[in-house]
């Protein structure tokens, strides 16, 4: 659906040229959400703006359905919708409906169809009753929902979202997440950048982590999480450990991590060690036994490191 090929960009500053993006490539297929993650200054926004045609790359290209942004700019951008970070995306003095109709017309959507789409989109985000309110009177969460609707007026097959849930409350974030999920299920290719790693983990089919202008990790979200999961088993007791815990766990590669938790590193003995330890702990009641599963925050910290991490 959308293929980003070898994008490279450097900017001239007073102290010399700085490479913002260095040969970034990735693809987002129809119906897929790619979370494009990285610390501040890693090159995420520059990449997304190059993808949208707002920044001209020094090298590389963006292809949508095989057509090049460099040579067919209007055709390609007509198939993209974008909610840009830090940008208001909307005219605050126009009403919600006026904004949607305006941006629909600007993207060549016929009037009657635009009205129909605007109503459907506003219904979907529970803002139909606010259609005739000016955007400046809406909450930040509502404005962001309208910005998303604006980006969807021409039903683009590719959606670019730069920090779409930044500064939103839980309810608004959930609403945006639900909409992104629905869009992906209906075949939209979504490129998402966010610092909210829990949201990325929930939404993304694939993740790409960028550092210093380069993709340093890319893969299916589940596979990436598995790859970074440690062979640890956490055992959580239903009540504090007994006084003779030290004796019971003697000889096992165990770390007591709390008054009612401990972690086992089974090592070469694998499940045998786990079952042997569980037998030793009996009859103390246990709440749960679970294998360690990395989350995206752990992956991010490990990949990005502390040098430039946020």
């Amino acid at each position: 659906m959308i293929r980003v090929q070898d994008l490279t960009k450097s900017f001239q500053t007073r102290t010399g040229r700085i490479a913002a993006v260095r040969g970034i490539s990735f693809e987002v297929q129809a119906g897929e959400v790619l979370a494009f993650l990285g610390p501040n200054g890693a090159g995420k926004t520059t990449t997304i703006k190059m993808t949208a045609g707002l920044i001209r790359p020094d090298q590389g290209d963006v292809l949508v359905d095989g057509r090049s942004l460099a040579s067919q700019h209007d055709w390609v951008t007509a198939r993209m919708g974008a909610v840009l970070e830090g940008s208001r995306n909307l005219y605050w003095r126009l009403t919600v409906l006026e904004n949607l109709l305006y941006w629909g017309a600007m993207r060549r959507v016929p009037g009657r169809l635009a009205r129909e789409r605007a109503s459907n989109l506003l219904r979907r985000v529970d803002l139909l009753t606010r259609a005739h309110n000016t955007v400046q009177t809406l909450s930040r969460g509502m404005q962001q929902k309208v910005a998303l609707c604006q980006a969807l007026m021409h039903e683009p097959p590719v959606l670019l979202l730069d920090e779409p849930t930044l500064g939103l409350d839980y309810e608004s974030s959930e609403s945006i997440k639900g909409m992104v999920r629905d869009l992906a299920q209906n075949g939209t290719a979504v490129l998402l950048t966010t610092h909210q790693l829990d949201i990325a983990q929930e939404l993304a089919d694939r993740v790409a982590i960028v550092r210093d202008g380069q993709v340093v990790l890319e893969g299916q979200t589940a596979a990436v999480l598995d790859r970074f999961s440690r062979p640890l088993v956490q055992i959580v007791a239903a009540e504090p450990w007994p006084a003779d815990l030290e004796r019971r766990i003697y000889g096992f590669p165990v770390t007591v991590t709390g008054p009612d938790t401990l972690e086992l590193l089974p090592g070469d003995r694998g499940e045998q060690a786990l079952y042997a330890l569980l037998a030793r702990l009996e009859p103390h009641p246990l709440a749960r036994v679970e294998r360690h599963q990395a989350d995206l925050a752990e992956v991010f910290l490990e990949v990005v490191g502390t040098r430039s991490g946020t």
């Binding site: 703006k49 949208a52 045609g53 707002l54 209007d74 055709w75 951008t77 007509a78 993209m80 974008a82 840009l84 830090g86 940008s87 208001r88 995306n89 909307l90 005219y91 605050w92 941006w103 600007m106 993207r107 060549r108 604006q150």
Partner: peptide, 18 residues
């Protein structure tokens, strides 16, 4: 100033026309 310039420059019309 309002932050809408980039959206305007993304529409599938030549910006001169707009």
């Amino acid at each position: 100033q309002n932050g809408t310039l980039e959206q305007v420059m993304m529409v599938p019309w030549n910006s001169v026309w707009v």
